[in-house]
Amino acid sequence: MRSSEKDLMLLDGYIKGRLDVDVTSEFEMRLVHERDLKADLEDLKELHQGMRVKALLEKLEMMKGWENDMVGEVSIAKILFQ
């Protein structure tokens, strides 16, 4: 990440779609001319999608956990009522 903290805030705002129209067009002009800024944007998009996968995997694992707990509860109930 070569961008300054200030530019990083702009990058964050840009990928989250939070920049005003004027700021967005100004920023997009900079992206055309500033190679490092453009590279940081590409990196940030990749990192962002990876974080999304990580967050979604946690939810899938949580659901798998519920199923395992339910199987465990059924087994205990079977033992108790045998």
């Binding site: 998009k45 990749e46 990192l47 999608q49 990876g50 974080m51 999304r52 995997l57 899938l60």
Partner: peptide, 21 residues
Amino acid sequence: VASYVIDEDNNVNEDQINMVC
């Protein structure tokens, strides 16, 4: 999950997602 995200955003590939994870 990576396939699902790639379907939505063609700018990333599975290798990149694996590396980020």
